[in-house]
Amino acid sequence: MNIFRLVADLMHLASIFILLLKIQKTRSCSGISFKSQLLYSIVFVTRYLDLFTAFISLYNTSMKIFFIATSIYILYLMKFKFRATYDPNLDTFRVEFLLGGSLLLALIFSDFVLMEILWQFSIYLESVAILPQLFMLSRTGEAETITTHYLFALGGYRALYLINWLWRFVTESHVDKISWIAGAVQTALYSDFFYIYYTKVLHGKKFELP
């Protein structure tokens, strides 16, 4: 563990809390893409199946359980409790291409080891899972401030993982090219969002697309 990955994980944790706060406070999931949330749940379930095969640490185990449980809870809030506030007409990204593409890459590069296929699938999928949300954002042209804080924390956590990997490469000779490339793609997808977040929200202005 290093400070970069610790802060990254805490940011990821914070993003979940911010999203839950937004949904609870406004009693609405408007502006949130159910498809992206579904993809994140799939990411967590497929990546954290090693809960049953390996024990890393209490920290590692509890974080995994937290992410799986909260992501499914968010799906429940969006699909059932606050379903009246969700507009599927705004959430129209074709996720089957993201799922299919991730699975294909995982099969190609995994030597057909099941746990490795699932892990790689989750890494590739996570790198593009924000696309339905960004697509929805581009269609509405604006976002609630709290939603932008959620997206900043979510986008920022993998950016910090990039620094964590740089640190681990230099200090431990730790190599993980698949994670590096997927993490870079994942962070790059947020660059437009980060720019608007920095120039508007952090100056007290509303998040609006030009």
Partner: peptide, 10 residues
């Protein structure tokens, strides 16, 4: 491309 080492990150 990727070693099948034990994954210790989230």
């Amino acid at each position: 491309l990727s070693p099948h080492r034990e994954k210790d990150e989230l």
